[in-house]
Nucleic acid binder design. Sequence first.
DNA 1: TATTGTTATACTCTATAACTATA
DNA 2: TATAGTTATAGAGTATAACAATA
Lengths: 153, 153
Amino acid sequence: MNATQQVSRPTTDPPIDCAEFSAVLERLLSAWRRLAVPGELSPTAAFTLSRLARDGSSRLTDLANSEHVTQPAMTQLISRLEAQGLAERFRDADDARVVNVRVTAAGETLVASRRAARAAKATELLAALPAAQQAALAMALPALEALAEVSAR
Amino acid sequence: MNATQQVSRPTTDPPIDCAEFSAVLERLLSAWRRLAVPGELSPTAAFTLSRLARDGSSRLTDLANSEHVTQPAMTQLISRLEAQGLAERFRDADDARVVNVRVTAAGETLVASRRAARAAKATELLAALPAAQQAALAMALPALEALAEVSAR
DNA sequence: TATTGTTATACTCTATAACTATA
DNA sequence: TATAGTTATAGAGTATAACAATA
């Protein structure tokens, strides 16, 4: 039967154990959750604000979809962020039904400080790894970036 | 002053941009969070159950600490998992105050099916990357694993 | 007296359903 | 009539404080 011979996949034999990769990512996510800056922001709020800071303003509905929460939940989340002075609504010029959201200066400051805090933790954790593993991560950085990109849909 | 010469770090010059790495990881985790298997389990419940399945039984207090929730919150979470037949309490032989928790067979089944679902998603997403990037991720897998390990404290 | 866990209570966040305004 | 968003209400999950049992 020649089952040992890969059939019609020239060079694309699975070079990576997807289940293993998925499991590792889950553990990383679990760990990340724990070193999240406590207090101030809920996970969804943090990701939403971070996204607004990264990608610019966005429609309320789009935010709801991309964070996988309902429209009413996002309405309330944005209201909370607005009350905290971290984000603000503005009407759409073309369609009066639409509500756009953008981060405020205070929001950007907060996002930046949270990022800095996480980067500091990351520095500390990465320093605990042997140089070879650090190098492997450095080499995989573009791939991780690409994966985040394709996963963001 | 010779500031350009690294002082006492022979070969461990930062081989990786920690801020960049942290930012990418944040995006990746944000995306990963959304493709979590929906419904049934809260994030904390899922992580707790997954941990029990991976590392074996654990004290209630340790679970609370490792998931960064309070003891009462973990008490209730375990009660919920117990009511769903996914985990169970058992008393400690040495110390009658202690409550240990373990996953049930049903719990293991659920964890396994969730893992499989995520692995399937991972397979799909990874397949969208060029072979070179897949290879880079495969090479970085042990390092990611080690990072998850050191982050778990 | 300290530690382990539970119960009581209140608050935050989210979902579903019903509603308003605009297209 | 469909779409964008809000309001109303209820439920899940968590925290703080007070408590019970054991060490």
